[in-house]
Design a protein around this nucleic acid. Structure first.
Lengths: 264, 264
DNA sequence: GAGTGGTCTAGACCACTGT
DNA sequence: CAGTGGTCTAGACCACTCC
């Protein structure tokens, strides 16, 4: 270990992994660390910065540097798509009997504090291609900002797009004060006669933009998972596109692929 | 914008987004930037560090700081699981006719340079639980290090685990010089009479450990996607567990969920 | 050898937190 | 108020790349 700052980061990392520094504990002040390691304060800061990028510690201005607790993680799985579809045709009272309804986040409504915003916008080239409609077709854009009710930091930002003409048959779908819609998107689509055939989810992880860091209250070093969910109906028409930004360290995805049997 | 370093990072970010600094371009030297912005070199370094964490630039020691090109991205989708299953019972010559075979990475064999290592190890508590076998049961551990043949940096590290007794019926499966096995894991399992019912994939994004940064040659700021693939056979028995570490910025995942039709 | 980024020093002053 | 981390300076020397 030639570098001073690596010596410091590996030493502190070992202390954290060994439990000598437990989650929630405060690290010694940077001046104290500088003295005990015999280096300057900027060098200590560089070493601690490595741990911060690894998500092991979190700095709080004026308070100190703390060992991070594992954030509450939320599981998002694809079996809920079928679950939601099975319930989409039931009445509201029936749904309440069988369990909480869901949203695009995969969370139950009771856990959520969220704000919906409805807008209309013309389809750009990208959306026109995805939906298979002419450019400029009016889209209904619904933006959901979601918080996990027991925590301060927002959980995600989701932007859902529908072709306005497709859903205009039910005026309730155009009113944001109807949110949270009890039954999810598939139930909403059922009210205008749309049945889904499949859902395609595409996603990747990347570093957050400055706006996303701000919006999601992300700690330094964690990536966001950006997910585009495309819903296709039984006539092979794309009926909904939903872009979701999730904090990478708090989201666990589970996808089950059921395979056909071999012929006997 | 109170801070000098934010002034620098936002200014350079705008130049990159506007295309004034194109991918592959070298930024001015840190001393030159310090002079033109009227700040000290460490302050410039702090500002450029922000862009580095965002994945916009890459520093190369002794060469300069460059605007990053979008890395070649590899798509991993779940439809290939059915595709692989359909071919698992065909002969090798039939498979060669219908197209290249695949591996756990979702890449075709021809694109890959990879190294396999076979080991045997007793199941720890975690694996014993997942496989539903007694602790200490001998597992076959296969480690694959994969490079995308046209690039320097390794693409992923995959560790696949099988219960040794389950696959010992075909001695070829225990020999690492048989790799790359032309037909994938499902074909290997077919040779010992195993048919898969479903595949469950669980994953999340997190900052890389120092070892992973080293092993995958990751640029600063990008997360890894860690994926656990569990294969379940037609008797509801877990037959393979595969842990894959992927660079978050180079991997795109696509999952299609097919939904059952509503009864008429 | 010239030019680049990487490490490090020894301070200064500011901004935020808690008492 | 004292203590903490955040920003910034003006250098020094080293390690790497390329000519």
């Amino acid at each position: 270990m030639a570098n001073q700052y690596e010596r410091i980061s590996t030493d502190l990392r070992h202390q954290i992994e060994a439990g000598e520094l437990a989650p929630g504990d405060r690290l010694p002040a940077e001046t104290a660390l500088a003295e005990s390691y015999g280096v300057s304060v900027p060098t200590v800061r560089q070493g601690v910065g490595v741990l911060q990028a690894e998500g092991l510690v979190e700095k709080q201005h004026g308070r100190g540097t703390f060992v991070r607790r594992q954030p509450t993680r939320v599981t998002r799985d694809n079996l809920r798509h079928q679950w939601e579809k099975d319930r989409a045709r039931e009445t509201e009272s029936e749904r309440l009997k069988t369990g909480a309804t869901e949203h695009d986040t995969g969370l139950t409504v009771n856990d959520l504090v969220f704000v919906a915003k409805y807008e209309q916008q013309p389809a750009d080239a990208d959306f026109a291609r995805v939906f298979g409609v002419p450019e400029g077709t009016t889209l209904l854009k619904r933006t959901y900002r979601t918080r996990y009710s027991e925590e301060r930091t927002p959980f995600n930002v989701a932007r859902s797009y529908l072709v306005l003409d497709m859903v205009a048959g039910n005026p309730d779908l155009l009113r944001e004060d109807q949110e949270p819609w009890p039954g999810g998107t598939q139930n909403q689509l059922h009210t205008v006669g749309i049945e889904l055939d499949r859902i395609v989810e595409t996603f990747r992880a990347r570093p957050p933009t400055p706006e996303e860091t701000e919006e999601l209250g992300l700690p330094v070093g964690v990536s966001v998972v950006v997910l585009r969910k495309t819903s296709v109906d039984t006539t092979d028409r794309v009926v909904e596109v939903s872009d979701v930004v999730l904090p990478g360290d708090r989201t666990e995805m589970v996808y089950t692929t059921k395979l056909n049997r071999w012929p006997a």
